[in-house]
Every structure is written in C-alpha cells, then in structure tokens.
Design a protein around this nucleic acid. Structure first.
Length: 276
DNA sequence: ACTCGTGTTAGCTG
DNA sequence: TCAGCTAACACGAG
C-alpha cells in the first residue's frame, strides 16, 4: 500500500496520537527491520524520551524526540513502511485510536488473523499504549537518524518550475523518472500510473522529450492525484486503479487498457489516450 | 508448486 | 563518473 498518500496518513496518525507520551520500553529485536542497528540499540536511545514531532519527505517518515535532563535533543526515529507496513497507535486502554485494523485494511483482506510476529517494532508508552510497525513482508525499516540526502523534493510540495527542471530530462522512460526517489520523493507504482493516465501521457516516452507545457500539465496531474489520494484514504482510490486488470477498459474513453513493464514495474496504460 | 508484488538498493553495463 | 537497468531482498497471497 504505502506510497506518499498512505505515508502522509500514517504521519498524521503519529502526530495526532503518538506525540508527547513517554517511552518506557522498545521492542527492536527484529535486526532485519532495524538494520544496521543491533538489537537494543534503538531501545537504549529512546527509553525515557518522548516523540515531539512527526515529519515526512516522500515515503520516509521521521520523528523528533525530546531531550533528557542534561542532554542534547534526542535522536530522530526514522520509519519507512516498505511495501506492506502500517503504523498502529494504541491508547492507554489498548484500543486502536488510529491506523485501523492491522489486517482488515484498505487492501481488503479480512480472513487472516494478525500474527504477533508481524509486529516488527514497538514503542511502549508510560500510559500503557503503544506505537507499532505492522508489516507482513518485513520490507519496512526503522532506524535512528535516517539519511535524507538521497531524496529529491517531496512530490506533494515541489513547485512547477522545479518539477519541470528535475523530471523533464534524460532518456529514461517518463514513468521511471517519476519513480526515481532522488528526482522526486513519494511517487510509487500506482500513483505513477494514475498521474500518467490523468495527464494522458505515454509511460514509455523519454522524459527529456516532454515540452514545458506538457510538464506543467503533468505537475498538475500529480498534484491532483496526490491530493485526492490523501483525501480518499490511499492511492488505491485513484480513478484508473481498479481498471488495471486483465480486459480492463479506460474509465474515460472505454478503450482497452494495456499492460507491460516500465521502469521495472508492472504498468497499465490506455491504448488510445496514452499512445500505447 | 510457482508467480507476483503499492519499495529500496547493491551492483553491473555502456 | 553518470544514467539506466536488473536482480535480490522477505514473505504472504493467489
């Protein structure tokens, strides 16, 4: 699930329900998710502190932490949801205040029961509540002081001039350019397909071939698609997403949807409007 | 049994 | 050195 819209929703969940609560315990035993930290390292850094702010750039989140007596401000806690991660914040009473049911999520699966081992990382608060990373596939990541240098500007905030300069260059397929997190941070496979469909652009087209006007329109489409996804609860709510299926038809013109691999990802496009 | 995947990245190639 | 591409990562779901 997690692309920029899902991560923004997770960030706001932490902001609304996870800040200001003193951390009394940390489960960082999963040394794959917490790499390169050794088990206990994150725990030692965070116990006694509080989360004071929740930030996001692209698909990466990080929380500022409070200072302890006589020390500098605490380390930043970096959180990445990977391919299947979710943030679950629980109240002192154990109820889920935000983040929804861990299994019965937007992906529609509802048969399974959440297994304890799918909780890959946990902060336990003094009030008895918790903040947890729930991640079936274990591609999520938790680390202290994450490096943000490799990330381009956030896809929801980049201005049109900057967007044109960064995206409209190179010979790589346009979709690959949109997916490159060092060019622009936050666009994932579904948001890329939705954006290109809205802008009626061929995903295979070399990015450097687009005109200034086309790039301006693409920037507008990205904004529109991203804002709608945040508002509606995730990228899966995009207009073309449910038509990315075998024998699917374009919901705008009715032409066949085609599929192939672009930028290493499964891609769907309208054969009529996107010059398939 | 076998393939796929809403993400990231080390490593290879030209 | 850079831009671009592929495989690998972990593991559940179909």
């Amino acid at each position: 699930m997690p692309e920029l819209p899902e991560v923004e929703l997770a960030r706001s969940t932490i902001e609304e329900a996870g800040l200001g609560r003193t951390i009394v315990d940390v489960d960082d035993a999963d040394d794959w998710v917490c790499r390169p930290h050794a088990p206990g390292e994150i725990r030692a850094a965070l116990v006694g502190r509080r989360l004071t702010a929740a930030h996001r750039r692209g698909k990466t989140m990080w929380c500022d932490t409070s200072q302890e007596d006589g020390e500098d401000a605490g380390p930043r806690l970096g959180l990445h949801l990977g391919m299947s991660g979710r943030i679950i914040v629980r109240t002192a009473e154990g109820g889920t205040v935000h983040g929804g049911d861990p299994v019965r999520g937007v992906d529609g699966t509802d048969a399974a029961v959440a297994k304890a081992e799918w909780y890959r990382f946990t902060l336990v608060f003094e009030d008895g509540g918790s903040l947890r990373l729930f991640d079936k596939r274990r591609l999520g990541r938790v680390r202290l002081d994450p490096d943000l240098e490799a990330l381009g500007p956030d896809a929801a905030e980049i201005g049109v001039a900057d967007f044109r300069a960064r995206v409209g260059r190179g010979t790589a397929p346009l979709k690959a350019r949109l997916l490159d997190q060092s060019v622009l941070a936050g666009v994932g496979n579904l948001l890329a397909d939705e954006t290109l469909w809205q802008a009626r652009q061929d995903p295979h087209r070399p990015a450097g071939e687009l005109s200034a006007d086309e790039l301006t329109a693409l920037h507008r489409s990205l904004r529109t698609a991203t804002e709608a996804a945040v508002r509606h609860g995730g990228v899966h709510t995009g207009e073309v997403i449910s038509h990315r299926v075998k024998a699917g038809r374009c919901p705008r013109c009715g032409a066949d949807m085609a599929t192939g691999r672009v930028g290493g990802r499964t891609t769907w496009w309208c054969t009529a409007e996107q010059q398939g």
